[in-house]
Computed example of a mutant assay.
Amino acid sequence: MKNLKNIIFIVLLIFLFVEVLIIFPNKLEQQETQEAPAAVTQNDPSQPDQKAQGIHLVETQQGSRDWELFSQVAEGYQGKSAVWELQNVKVLFYNKEKVSFTVTGDLGSIDGKSKDLRIKGNVVTRSENGYIFKTPSIFYNAKKRQIVSPEKVTMQGPKDEMGDGFVLEGKNMLVQVDDSRMTVSQAVRGSKKFKDGKDFFITSDKAEFSGKSRQAKFSGNVEMKYANLRLQGPAAVFQYKGVTDLISYIQMQGGVRVSDADKVATSDTVDLDLFKNIFTFRGKPKVVQGQDELSGEEIIFLDGGKKVKVERVRARMEKRD
């Protein structure tokens, strides 16, 4: 009888051993496996996967630097396409290993796949030679290496020896990083105040600026006003003297009309020396004042049009009683 009790006791111990060490852990493992998906589905997809302070990134193309980025805060979202959201952004855009443009803004984002950039909020784009463009936002196409903004643009040109730089407004900015060229292609309105107190105004369909030199070109329905003169033509090119900041002259091209209170002058081109206040008409130049007409090989307005000089003059005068 005693032996039977011992045998039963031993069997019970063995059964308990199997239950604790084998069956119970197996049930626990199955329970954890079933509960795991529920824990994953409770994650908030709006929360960043990564967050970092003081970010510095460098992107290259074909062995050369494309852009270099600095950000105070960066938050990473993986998802279908990795995206980084940025705060207090500064981006340097390179051309042949030299900084051509610098863009700053309040917020930004990086597409981890395409390396395209978006920046918004008090966005300022600065060219290497001193042009400043302000826009609500910009988009950088990494493949084309272009900075674009279809919104309103305000430009401040660099100062020169004749006074403050051009102030310009328009829409639809395009910056071509490889060519160091900036274009505003809609509703262009610009002005400049000279040291002598005279104001210069210009409107056009399009304006182009170089990030390397100081040359600028306005095209499409160009109209300029300076002192009492009004100038109209298809295009105007601003030429600078050598590498200085001094405007050498402004040339209007493609058929030009200049008028003031009492006369009208036309020619193929007009060179405007605003510093000396001399306007030179070339290419079938003609001046009409009342019923009188003057033409020649070259016509020059001196002192802003108060005096007229004609080379090889041909005149048609209306007979008066």
Rank of each mutant, 00 (worst) to 15 (best):
G197P: 03
K198H: 07
D199L: 08
F201I: 12
F201T: 14
F201V: 12
I202G: 02
T203L: 06
T203H: 09
S204H: 09
S204W: 05
S204E: 09
D205N: 15
D205Y: 10
D205G: 15
K206P: 06
K206L: 13
A207I: 13
E208H: 10
E208L: 14
E208N: 13
S210P: 10
S210I: 00
G211N: 04
K212V: 02
K212G: 03
K212F: 01
K212M: 07
K212E: 10
R214K: 04
R214A: 02
Q215Y: 15
Q215M: 06
A216S: 10
K217G: 00
K217L: 04
F218S: 00
F218H: 01
F218N: 00
S219V: 11
S219G: 14
G220D: 05
N221C: 13
V222D: 05
V222I: 10
V222L: 09
E223A: 06
E223D: 03
E223M: 08
E223H: 06
M224E: 05
K225I: 14
K225P: 00
Y226T: 06
Y226P: 04
Y226M: 05
A227N: 14
N228H: 14
L229Q: 14
L229W: 09
R230M: 14
L231P: 04
L231A: 10
L231G: 04
L231F: 10
L231T: 06
Q232Y: 15
Q232M: 09
Q232F: 15
G233Y: 00
G233E: 08
G233Q: 08
P234S: 14
P234T: 12
A235M: 15
A235P: 07
A235K: 12
A236S: 08
Q239R: 06
Y240Q: 01
Y240C: 01
Y240M: 01
K241F: 03
K241M: 03
K241D: 06
